[in-house]
Amino acid sequence: LVRYRTISKIPQITLNFVDLKGDPFLASPTSDREIIAPKIKERTHNVTEKVTQVLSLGADVLPEYKLQAPRIHRWTILHYSPFKAVWDWLILLLVIYTAVFTPYSAAFLLKETEEGPPATECGYACQPLAVVDLIVDIMFIVDILINFRTTYVNANEEVVSHPGRIAVHYFKGWFLIDMVAAIPFDLLIFGSGSEELIGLLKTARLLRLVRVARKLDRYSEYGAAVLFLLMCTFALIAHWLACIWYAIGNMEQPHMDSRIGWLHNLGDQIGKPYNSSGLGGPSIKDKYVTALYFTFSSLTSVGFGNVSPNTNSEKIFSICVMLIGSLMYASIFGNVSAIIQRLYSGTARYHTQMLRVREFIRFHQIPNPLRQRLEEYFQHAWSYTNGIDMNAVLKGFPECLQADICLHLNRSLLQHCKPFRGATKGCLRALAMKFKTTHAPPGDTLVHAGDLLTALYFISRGSIEILRGDVVVAILGKNDIFGEPLNLYARPGKSNGDVRALTYCDLHKIHR
Rank of each mutant, 00 (worst) to 15 (best):
K66R: 11
K66A: 07
L67G: 07
L67D: 04
Q68W: 04
A69G: 11
P70L: 09
I72C: 06
R74W: 04
W75S: 04
W75I: 05
I77S: 01
L78Y: 06
L78A: 11
L78R: 09
H79Q: 02
K84W: 05
V86I: 14
V86M: 12
W87A: 01
W87S: 01
W87R: 01
D88E: 05
D88G: 01
D88S: 01
W89G: 04
W89P: 01
W89E: 01
W89M: 03
L90G: 07
L93G: 07
V95K: 01
I96N: 01
Y97I: 01
Y97N: 01
T98N: 14
A99C: 01
V100Q: 01
V100T: 01
V100F: 01
V100D: 01
F101A: 11
T102F: 01
T102E: 01
Y104M: 01
Y104V: 01
A106Y: 11
A107R: 01
F108S: 01
F108W: 01
F108T: 01
L109V: 04
L109D: 09
L109S: 15
L110A: 14
L110V: 14
K111L: 04
K111H: 15
E112V: 07
P118Y: 01
A119R: 15
A119L: 11
T120I: 04
E121V: 15
G123A: 06
A125K: 15
Q127Y: 12
P128T: 14
A130V: 05
V132P: 01
V132N: 01
D133Y: 01
V136F: 05
I138M: 03
M139G: 04
M139D: 01
M139I: 03
F140K: 01
V142W: 01
D143R: 01
I144S: 01
L145S: 01
T150P: 01
T150L: 02
N154E: 13
A155P: 13
V160Y: 01
S161M: 08
H162T: 10
P163Q: 04
I166L: 08
A167S: 04
A167C: 05
V168P: 01
H169C: 04
L176T: 14
I177W: 10
D178I: 01
M179L: 13
V180Q: 01
A182C: 13
I183V: 10
I183L: 09
P184N: 04
P184Y: 01
F185S: 04
D186N: 12
D186H: 14
L188K: 09
I189R: 14
I189G: 13
S192Q: 11
E195W: 14
L197N: 03
I198C: 10
I198D: 02
I198N: 09
I198V: 11
I198A: 05
G199P: 04
L201W: 01
K202S: 03
K202D: 01
T203D: 01
A204E: 01
R205Y: 04
L206E: 01
L207D: 01
L207R: 14
R208N: 08
R208I: 04
V210P: 10
V212M: 06
V212H: 07
R214W: 04
K215T: 03
L216F: 09
D217T: 06
Y222V: 05
Y222D: 08
A224H: 05
A225N: 05
V226Q: 13
L227Q: 03
L227D: 01
F228N: 01
F228C: 13
L229C: 09
L230S: 05
L230G: 04
L230H: 14
M231R: 01
C232H: 01
T233Q: 05
F234T: 01
A235L: 09
L236G: 01
L236Y: 01
I237W: 01
I237A: 04
A238W: 01
A238G: 03
H239M: 01
L241G: 01
A242L: 01
C243H: 01
C243E: 01
C243P: 01
G249P: 01
G249S: 01
N250S: 09
E252L: 01
E252G: 03
P254A: 15
S258I: 07
S258R: 14
I260V: 10
G261F: 01
G261L: 01
W262I: 01
W262R: 03
H264L: 01
H264R: 06
H264F: 04
L266P: 01
G267L: 03
G267E: 01
G267I: 01
D268H: 04
Q269M: 04
I270Q: 03
G271R: 01
K272G: 01
P273D: 01
N275M: 04
S276A: 14
S276E: 09
S277K: 03
S277F: 04
G278K: 05
L279F: 14
G280I: 01
G281I: 01
S283Q: 01
K285Q: 13
K285A: 13
K285R: 13
K285S: 10
D286R: 01
D286K: 01
K287G: 01
Y288G: 01
Y288C: 01
V289N: 01
T290P: 01
A291Q: 01
Y293G: 01
F296R: 01
L299Q: 01
L299D: 01
T300I: 01
V302M: 03
G303K: 01
G303W: 01
G305D: 01
V307W: 01
S308Q: 01
S308N: 05
P309F: 01
P309A: 03
N310T: 15
N312W: 01
N312R: 01
S313Y: 06
E314F: 01
V321C: 03
I324P: 01
I324N: 01
S326M: 14
M328T: 05
Y329R: 13
S331V: 12
G334D: 05
G334W: 03
N335G: 03
N335W: 08
N335K: 12
N335C: 03
V336I: 06
A338V: 14
A338C: 07
I340S: 03
I340L: 04
I340T: 05
R342E: 08
S345V: 11
R349G: 09
R358D: 01
E359N: 08
E359T: 03
E359H: 04
F360L: 04
F360N: 01
F360Y: 03
F360M: 04
Q365G: 08
I366T: 01
N368T: 10
P369F: 03
P369R: 03
L370S: 01
L370D: 01
R371W: 01
Q372I: 06
R373A: 04
R373W: 01
L374V: 14
L374S: 03
L374T: 04
E375T: 10
E376A: 10
Y377D: 12
Q379N: 04
Q379V: 07
A381V: 10
W382H: 04
S383H: 01
Y384D: 11
T385F: 04
T385H: 15
M390V: 05
N391Y: 15
A392K: 14
V393N: 03
V393E: 03
L394Y: 05
K395M: 08
K395C: 08
K395A: 12
K395H: 15
K395W: 03
F397D: 01
C400M: 09
C400W: 11
C400E: 09
C400V: 06
Q402I: 04
Q402D: 01
A403P: 02
I405R: 02
I405P: 01
H408D: 01
L409E: 03
L409M: 08
S412W: 09
L413D: 01
Q415M: 07
Q415N: 08
H416Y: 13
C417T: 12
K418H: 09
K418W: 06
P419V: 13
P419T: 09
R421E: 12
R421K: 12
G422S: 10
T424D: 12
T424E: 07
K425C: 04
C427D: 03
C427W: 01
R429V: 03
A432T: 04
F435K: 02
H439C: 07
A440Q: 08
P441S: 08
P442I: 04
P442L: 03
D444C: 08
V447G: 03
A449D: 13
A449Q: 10
A449N: 08
